[in-house]
Design a protein around this nucleic acid. Structure first.
Length: 230
DNA sequence: GCGACAG
DNA sequence: ATCTTGTCGC
């Protein structure tokens, strides 16, 4: 576990400062292929409730070799930041990092619900948190934040480059026929080819990769259990 | 000014 | 993201 995680600072700051911080941090991103094999892949998901300043977060560590869940953590807490397009990491970051602090099994890589470098200032949720966690990370968003791309063919594995101001910042990936594609972009310590490989290795017949799907189920289950218990 | 806008 | 039942299609 990296020792430099501080969930309180510098997350709760004005948007102008947050934007400046994003630009600074983006310059520190690394896009090398991960050195070792990636076996344990973490998936992260969050859940909210209308008119409620709280959120639930779940992290699931999934074994790509066996297809089994290695560990899962779910917790709830107040979000310190409203949802503002382009600043999602400042909203979900603190709670997501708290969840990672509780993990007994450190993953080899992380799949986030959101963008990596396919972001106005090059630092989406996956890039920001990947940097903090010092882990290879990938942004797997269900919709577009920025950039342009042609619609990929309706065939699993088909993808088209996501371009932003002349740069390929990600890919629009069809993971399943007749399903809307996913927006995959490198977060940190991985390149686009590696990100696409990893996501596809985690697919098991559904639109979303398993770590993400399981995290979604875990957060829903945790929320329902809490509602029943009180 | 207008439209777009991860979760 | 969330509020929501049934329903159409593979």
């Amino acid at each position: 576990m990296p020792h430099h995680i501080d969930p309180l600072h510098p997350w709760n700051i004005p948007l102008t400062e947050a934007a400046a911080l994003q630009q600074e941090l983006a310059a520190r991103l690394v896009f090398d292929r991960p050195v070792g094999p990636i076996r344990w892949v973490a998936g992260v998901d969050g859940s909210y409730r209308r008119f409620c300043p709280d959120m639930w977060v779940a992290v699931v560590v999934w074994d790509a070799m066996t297809g089994e869940t290695v560990e899962q953590v779910a917790l709830t807490g107040r979000v310190p930041f409203p949802y503002v397009p382009g600043f999602l990491s400042f909203r979900e970051g603190p709670l997501v990092l708290q969840a990672f602090e509780r993990l007994q099994h450190w993953p080899d890589a992380v799949l986030f619900d959101g963008q990596g470098i396919a972001h106005p200032r090059g630092l989406g949720l996956a890039s920001h948190l990947g940097l903090w966690l010092d882990l290879p990370s990938v942004g797997v968003a269900k919709s577009r934040l920025c950039g342009e791309a042609v619609d990929p063919l309706d065939e699993p594995g088909a993808w088209s480059p996501l371009e932003l101001s002349g740069r390929t910042v990600g890919a629009v990936l069809r993971t399943r026929t007749r399903c809307r594609p996913l927006y995959v972009s490198p977060g940190h310590r991985i390149d686009l080819a590696g990100a696409l490989d990893l996501v596809q290795q985690c697919l098991r017949g559904y639109r979303l990769p398993e770590p993400t799907r399981l995290a979604h189920h875990a957060v829903s289950a945790a929320r329902r259990a809490a509602a029943r218990t009180g």
